[in-house]
Structure formats: structure tokens, C-alpha cells
Design a protein around this nucleic acid. Sequence first.
RNA 1: GGUCGGAUGGCCGAGUGGCUAGGCACAGCUCUGCAAAAGCUGCUACAGCGGUUCGAAUCCGCUUUCGACCUCCA
Length: 498
Amino acid sequence: MEHNFHIYNSYTRQKEKFVSIVPGYAGLYVCGPTVSGESHLGHARPYITFDVVQRYLKHIGYRVRYVRNITDAGHFEEEGREAIDKVSEKAKLEKLEPMELVHKYTNLFHHGMRLFNNEDPAIEPTATGHIVEQISMIETIIEKGYAYEVNGSVYFDVTKYAAEYPYGKLSGRVLEDQLETTRDLDGQDEKRNKADFALWKKAPPEHIMRWKSPWGEGFPGWHIECSAMSSKYLGEVFDIHGGGMDLQFPHHESEIAQSTIAHGHAPVNYWMHNNMITINGKKMGKSYNNFITLTQLFTGTHPVLEQAYHPLVVRFYILQTHYRSTLDFSNEALQASEKAARRLWEAYEILKKLAHPGNTEAKDTKLDDQVNTWIKEFAEFMDDDLNTAKVIANMFELAPVINGMKGGQVKPDAISFATFKKLQDAFKVYLEDILGMQALQAQQSNKMDHVLSLLIEIRSDAKKRKDFATSDQIRNRLAEFGVQLKDEKDGTVSYSIE
RNA sequence: GGUCGGAUGGCCGAGUGGCUAGGCACAGCUCUGCAAAAGCUGCUACAGCGGUUCGAAUCCGCUUUCGACCUCCA
């Protein structure tokens, strides 16, 4: 397959050309949400980023199997303390059935994903639906001698593993350092070593979510679900594993350890990690209690929000920054993205309708060359570790050419017909198909279209009579409702709706 | 405390040795009955101090400072 897609591999800490295991096919696994609460702005980043990854993989010719899990059970709250199932704890507080709670937030999550225009993963496995696979994998690890059972719980023997394998390579840490970090570990000294992590936890009597296992009733540890499900659907070794940087340790490091023992080799060829979204310089997250939920974001109901933000504005805002940089939230930044996204999309709409005289030779070869260069760079920038920021920058370079063709500042025959078609095609492919942008304004019903047309007609008549009071009244009142009329140069009137 | 990563113009953000993105904001102009939109023009920054180099935002060192991870976390 001919392509030049390079991605930064967190494991090797360098950009590498992407080569899939099976030619023509690409497997992508991304850590999905824990559905014990509503997703927030921070969660939007990986799902939008990896949506673009899988869109781009498809674009360059791969058949992609995109797997994103739903964590709907079983995580212990804090190591060294009493094991509490997050989902069941919250469920008690809200007096809901765990399943009801999980369902509610799963639905909300899906709704948010659709609003972001993220394509559905091919498979979206749940942790609770794969208990059997997880238990089986744990049994294998025990058989191989790298896990031990204590009092109904099973732990992975990190010390033994680290003696033979590069434990800590992904997250860049040394086991010895880990052992030195002192924490209160009293109470639960079941583990042989502090660095050991749970594969299976015994469920205390009050636990609602529990499953039978060879070690008694309990629930799976956090890390095992991703290993069990990724190997089931993508194979023991697969191409790309994605997720937030905060998951590198311990989650992804543990995944590597588990799978390496269970399957005899490392599970992932390319690790990709997106950086965090911050607010006031701090990571947005549960721990700081500084998160803005997606619903709040879309409705403008969080105290820090000056307004509601369209999901696609958020998408654009995220894609304007490289995925490995931190992205700081601010109203100013979102508002800038809103204007920018609107302007770009309008240029695209114009481009679609633009007519070209069909000349095979460009009248302005310099401009023609420049346009071709900008278009060619779309692919180069994407190939360079998904630099969506630069792709968008080039689109803004092209926007004045497009708008100028409409406004008369650029003669349509300045570029050749071939270049013009390429331009149309490139915007469609990159803006719509790969970046996944759409029109920001809602589709208006035909009836409302007619109402607006009528008002525009009345206003045009008033203008002809030089009755500017009436024409301005119509325009200004509509503007108050968020409908902006524009008198075009050719005498027609267009409008945009906020 | 340990490990790692940042610090770019009014704001957001690309960019790893010379050609110094882009967006938003702001100012002027063109167009226009007036607006809006659009176009053109202007606004030239790289935390500080040293060093390497013909040349550094970009490489090295130190300082200041912010953050991430080390515990659930996208």
C-alpha cells in the first residue's frame, strides 16, 4: 500500500512510518469511557482525535477495525484501600440500578459522540460482557506463574515480570523508583509488592456488581478488560492502541505486562497518546472537580461558560491544535474557533457552488502553483503525525482564493480547471471526510426558508423604493434573532443563521 | 520527593538551525444607501542568562516558572 503515514509512537518515543500487520487492514483500539458519570470536555479530545485517525487510515486505503470499549463495571476505587466498585457506589447514592445508571450514561455518551460527528466504532465491547474472557486471561497468567491469588483476589507479579521484561518502558519509569514512592499501604498487605496490580478483586458483601470466578465472587481489575477485549477483536498483536496520556501509567503499562505474559509477546505495535485539555492551566478532570460536562458545554450552563458552544465548534477547536500538545480551555479560544469554523465552512459552501470557465491553462501560474502546493500539503501534514493544525492553516490560506473568486478579486480563470477540481475535491475530502466537519447551522425546514424568502422579498421592494427605514428594520430585527442578511454584489441576498 | 513535558505576539496556537504558519481581536482601505460578509494592508513574538554556530524560537547548560504522571482519570 502506497502511503507515507507516520505516527509518533509513545513506546519508542519517535515518529515511525505506519505499517500494518496485515496489509490493507488496520486494527485500532481506543480506551473508551467509564460510564459511571457524564463525559466531559476532556473526554472529547481522544474520541475526536482517534476518529480522525481512523478516518485518515480509511482515506489512505485501509480497511479499519476500530474498537472502543465501554467500561461499565468493576474498577476498584483506590489501591490499598477498601475495594469499592465505582459503578455500584454511585448507584447507591442515586438509588438507581447499576445497569440503569450505566445505560443512562452510555446513551448520553453516544449522543455526544454523534453530535461531534464521530463515526461509530466497528465494535464497542463492554467490560461486563467480557467477564469470561477476562477470567480466562487471568487463569493463563496464573498458569504461567506471573500472578498469584490471595484471599479471593488475584494480583499480577510486577517484580517477577520486570526482571525479564522492560516494565515501565512505555511510561518512562523505573520500577525501583516506584518501590520508593511511599504511600499508605497499610491494611491491605495482600500484595507481595507494592507495584503489583490487581487482576481480580474479591467483592465485599455490599458489592452489587459481582461475578463468580475460580477465586470466588468478585470483579475484574481495571486493566484486564482492555487486554481481553483488544486481543479478542483485534488479535494478540494489533496495530494501534490509543488513549489519553494519563492512561500511560498504570493502565497501558499494565496492559502490556498482562498481554506479554498471556500471549507471549507485546500486544501493540504503535501506541498513540493524546495530551490533556486544561482549564486555568490545570488538567480538566474528576480529581480537580473542574470539568465541564458535554451537556453543559453544548447548552452553556456551566458557570465558566459565557455561552453555549456547538459540538462542531468544539471539534474544530480540538483539531486546531496538535493532539500531543496540551489544549487550554477558554471562552476566547472557543469563540475564536467558532468564527473560524464558520468562515471556513462558508468558504467551502461557496467553493461547491463556484463555476469555473474550464480553461486548461492557468492565467495566473503563480497562484495556480501556490494553490496546488497548499493542496498537496494536506496529505503531507496529515502524514506527519496527524498535524491537523497545519491542514487547517492551509485551508485558511485557500479561503481568500475561494472567496475572492466569488467576490471578483480573483478571476476564476486564474487557476486551471484541473486545479479548480482538485481544490473542490481536497476540501470535500479533508474538511468534510477526514476532519469530519459539517455545517454549523441547523438544517432549516423548507417552510422557514419560504418565510425568510418572503421577508427578503419585502425588504428588496422597500430598498427599491429607497425606503431604507423598512429595509433596515427587517434586517436589524432578523439580526436580533440571529439571522444575518447579506447583500451580495450581484444584488442577491443571502443569509446565515447563528 | 521521583520521572517526564511545557514556557511563542492582546488571546489561541503551528513551527526543531537560515525562507520567521494560521485563527481570533484590533486599525486603515476597497466594495456598499447603510450594514454585514468578503477582499487588501498593517500589527512580527518566541520566559531569563550564558554557550555552540557565519546564522538559534529551534541545539547545549544554568535559572525562573507552569503542568502531567507516580492513586481513579481521556
